[in-house]
């Protein structure tokens, strides 16, 4: 991991009204790195991802993308196109079929020509095992299938990094595996990933680093071995004990 950081979070804060949800967050994500964010519900994990993706405007701090602060730059659309997001609720475009879901961003945002965009979309849909469903509408798919399409849609933008916000939490148990399998292969392919998850086994297996969030701060940041086997803080231990019991 001696690569340059793709994303650097510096002194990031976010308040909703009086309530400070993120308090001085600092960390880097390097190229090719897979970082899992764990922590109990309400600790600010989603808010952090949403700030990085500019779905929320941070109250203070900086987000550096390849070295430049995107919070002080005027045009953020290009940045958004290059840092993708996979949502808990899939958020597929319901008016478009599976193929078009993966084509529309390439054509409209990246100005790719349609034929190349379709080729690329099919390549990624094949990678997530959804190629045969390109004509289907989102409403005709199961949750696991929808999430795999959502991943292909994000990949089709050929992002520098992908953010995942609890990608398997809305799925029936029997569908969790198929999505995790896809994510594991992405991690192995060298994609830069920042994943919020409650799947501890998955986090342990695929992460280069684990970040433990608690009450709006990063309490611990280390390798899976450090976090799972030698946690420094009581709260980390307590959380892991609870999470492992499930």
């Amino acid at each position: 991991m001696d690569q340059k950081p793709v994303i650097q979070i510096q002194n990031l804060k976010k308040s909703f009204g009086q309530r400070e949800v993120l308090k001085d967050i600092n960390f880097d994500v390097h190229k090719g790195e897979v970082v899992c964010i764990i922590g109990s519900s309400g600790s600010g994990k989603s808010t952090l991802l949403r700030c990085i993706n500019l779905l929320e405007t941070p109250t203070a701090g900086a987000i550096l993308y390849n070295g430049s602060n995107i919070l002080s730059s005027g045009n953020t659309h290009k940045y958004c196109a290059k840092v993708g997001m996979v949502f808990q609720q899939f958020n597929l475009f319901n008016n478009l079929n599976v193929l078009e879901n993966c084509v529309v961003g390439q054509v409209k945002v990246l100005k790719q020509n349609r034929k190349e965009a379709e080729e690329r979309a099919k390549r990624y849909l094949e990678q997530v095992g959804m190629l045969q469903f390109i004509n289907a509408r989102p409403r005709q798919l199961s949750g696991g299938q929808k999430q795999r399409v959502a991943i292909a849609r994000a990949l089709a933008m050929e992002p520098d990094a992908l953010l995942f916000d609890e990608p398997t939490s809305a799925l029936d148990p029997e569908m969790v595996g198929e999505v995790l399998k896809v994510m594991k292969s992405l991690a192995e392919s060298g994609l830069t990933m920042l994943v919020v998850t409650h799947e501890m086994g998955f986090a342990r297996d695929i992460s280069d680093r684990i970040v433990f969030m608690d009450g709006g701060i990063i309490l611990e940041d280390g390798t899976p071995d450090e976090i799972f086997n030698h946690p420094k803080h009581e709260r980390t231990k307590a959380f892991l004990t609870r999470a492992m019991d499930k």
Binding site: L55, G84, M85, F87, G105, V109, M157
Partner: peptide, 10 residues
Amino acid sequence: GQAEATHSIG
């Protein structure tokens, strides 16, 4: 969510 997804692809 769909509006957020459009935003997330730029």
